[in-house]
Computed example of a mutant assay.
Amino acid sequence: MRVIVIGGGVAGAAGAVALRRIGAEVTVYEAYADPAGRVGSFLSLAANGLRGLDALGCLETVGRAGFTVPRQRLWAETGKLLGDMPRGRPAGDTLMSVTLMRGRLVEALRGEAVRAGARLVTGQRLVDAVTEGPTVRAEFDSGLTAEADLLVGADGIWSATRRILDPASAEPRYAGLYSASGVARGVDVEPGTFNMVFGRNGAFIYLATPDGAVWWAAQVASPRPPDPASIDLDLVKGLYRREQMPAAVLAGATEWHRPTLMHVLPEVPVWRDDRTVLVGDSGHPVGAGQGASMAIEDAVVLARALQETDVPAALAVYEQKRRARIAKMVKSASANRDAKTAGPVARRVRNLIMPTAMKLFYERGTSWLYTHDVTAGWQHSGDHVPSQR
């Protein structure tokens, strides 16, 4: 089976690894060259995403690119502790959440895909895809064309594949938040804990790294989308000047990453046709720290479905297995965003209720997310499973 993967980010690289594991001939077409090192901001992989990486044989490689963070603490803007719980896992799960720079995750997964035998072609942007019987032909802006049995659209929230599948599909819209991030030094932060402060102007995240630095990210509430060029460190410092720990972290900032506007996408009605399918943010950007983990889950489910039946039927199985879980995740992410943009009255109510609610309901309310295992029946050996399709 020949597969074209559009996009070499987390979804595309994980998909390439999974598809090579079932013996597919995989070529990844990506607009950008391989990222390396500390590119962009950081992300975390929860237990469900880590089990997916384990199924793909990538868990150890990705683990070396980041560090484990056993616990998470939530704080009010006043400094009151609102919750203290295991990070991205149930209390009894020994699989610890891993935090790493996004570029390092992509770098690790692309390396695994290439080692598994996938071909990576950079500098190519998809402009059209046409299904002709049992094959699909992809056309790129360079004039290059390629044919395959399956095209996997892993090209993110601004997906060209999604627009080709359904020209009427909605476009992303600004989510009312923008993100600015960086690195601080000389700040005393307890290691092993992911901290989120629900500040007056948005959430502020910080955590200590093994080398003593502090990674931080501000998710600033802004009803109108600002010009990213107008956002600088002094602006962010001013927004968080009244929150003790965010102010201290920002005072020690030594690195500044390019700010980005955060976007959401309405439900995508068309995920597939008989030869093309969307995975990751191209079909369902979820947020709430689960984007990478959900993309990895997608990769495992798609490959397993293709291992069991022909391409059109497998794509239907993939959609059937993923739709309900993704819809529940999107709903949870929406509540997460609302908490970050709460007004004064809502903040007071939250600060009063959340400590008790977290103790009584948090683990029960998140077990569907963190205990989900897409790997049942997956072969954990390094051998590829020959494809008959």
Rank of each mutant, 00 (worst) to 15 (best):
A36W: 10
D373K: 10
M358H: 00
M262D: 11
L360K: 14
V374S: 13
V39G: 01
A36E: 15
G83E: 07
D155R: 06
E243R: 08
T122H: 09
A14I: 02
L150A: 10
E308C: 11
M329H: 02
P285M: 07
D54I: 02
A129V: 11
L144Y: 10
V69L: 14
G199T: 07
V214A: 08
E77T: 06
L144F: 12
V183N: 03
D373V: 10
G23Q: 13
E243H: 06
P86H: 11
V317C: 04
Q219N: 11
G289K: 12
A168Q: 11
L59K: 10
V5P: 08
W215K: 12
V301R: 06
E139K: 05
E132S: 13
P167S: 06
A118I: 03
W256V: 03
W271G: 01
N336G: 03
E267H: 13
A295H: 12
S44R: 08
T99Q: 15
R347F: 02
G212A: 11
D34H: 07
G382D: 14
D34Y: 01
D54E: 15
L43T: 04
A76I: 12
F140Q: 08
E77F: 09
H372S: 06
V10T: 13
E308L: 15
A47W: 05
E363Y: 03
